[in-house]
Design a protein around this nucleic acid. Sequence first.
DNA 1: CTCTCCTCTCTTGTATACACGACGTAGACG
DNA 2: CGTCTACGTCGTGTATACAAGAGAGGAGAG
Lengths: 223, 223
Amino acid sequence: MNSRKDAHSVGVGPVQSARERAYTGIRSAILKGSFEPGAFVEEAQACEITGVSRSPVREALSRLAAEGYLEQHPRRGAMVRWLSPTELRDLHEVRLMVETHAASKICREKRPIPDTLLELCEAHEATPAEDLLGCVEINRLFHQALVAAAGNTVLVQVFDGLQAPLSRAAMLSLRQGVGKTEIIEVEHREMVAALSVHDEERAVEVIRRHLALMPRLTRALTA
Amino acid sequence: MNSRKDAHSVGVGPVQSARERAYTGIRSAILKGSFEPGAFVEEAQACEITGVSRSPVREALSRLAAEGYLEQHPRRGAMVRWLSPTELRDLHEVRLMVETHAASKICREKRPIPDTLLELCEAHEATPAEDLLGCVEINRLFHQALVAAAGNTVLVQVFDGLQAPLSRAAMLSLRQGVGKTEIIEVEHREMVAALSVHDEERAVEVIRRHLALMPRLTRALTA
DNA sequence: CTCTCCTCTCTTGTATACACGACGTAGACG
DNA sequence: CGTCTACGTCGTGTATACAAGAGAGGAGAG
């Protein structure tokens, strides 16, 4: 009758689908740097890593290609994409455009600032500087929440689309030991302050200054 | 049944892969309105339409979902997405942001205006007003070329990502017989003129005015 | 007569087998 | 000795077979 017991015995986990396992497995392998940029991720190889068959693996590869991690060549396979300096610059430019637009909109439309932003500032403060991965994740969530506060779902989607390649760049730069995450938290608070009083000019200026740091962090790795 | 040889005998036929046939087939079916928004595109059904097996069909469905045509529900299938009035408004807002940014950049960086833009204006003029589909396509190409002229590949990608849902809206509104494509061509020429002399303020103003028309065209269909 | 539960069928999710094309290598010829 | 060609192997592209969950419909009980 109740054949659901197996699912419970495994744990709380909702019996992750094979597709999801393949996606997260391959994705983390790429992020960890298991594959050199320019290398081909072979399907059989991905099957071994993730422990599922080729069907879900292929779907995961397609999805990763759509998200900008891979580049699919017909009859050749899926290649780990390079991030050229040009593309990185373009990414940052678009990101700046998106966040600037979000901040302007929030101020102009007198939108309320979600508590999440302040909470993330505090979380950032509470996180030890050594935990670079944690800092990066909090940083990501902060900017995502900022964009979301503008109340435009499409804008958030665009922003999320930028995150995939940018997160790769962040991971790579982290492994090279680029530090200085203290300034970030200070500037985040400054942004919240400006947004809270709906001071458009100042908010945009802070964001400009804040995001101007980023290209320097990720420049080294593309050279 | 041996359609591969046929493809060769046709000559120009680029021996379309099954995946591509599935993608274009399903996509055009959606665009033609063969599926009601909210309806599920069943895989077997899609197989019959496109004449390929479920493997490429599934990949095509995933891709269409990534592009915003469909919404995949686990264990349920792929549903043709609704375009809510809110989402349509958000789409237009982001689109305006992208094109405004492109125009500003072109002017500020004194970028050359590609000949394509003027050629497309002439092509638009040459196209009879009855050929709404042709006009829409030329319009799309014009705006794409405009964004591309800014020289930021990521920005172009974002713009293309917006096109999928917007083109659906355009198709739907066309079938409802919303006309008036003459104004478009005039304003396009105005935009080219402003961009040619790198008059940022005027270019942005024209784009604002031009794109302000669009939400009205597509509003009716969501009500 | 209605509500609930069970079962049956239909659809998706996953695995695997087969086919075709591409690249690398080895052998032969100039 | 170099180059061109032909064959073999490997990897993706496609098709299909199998498994499992979800929804609809019918039967039984209240």
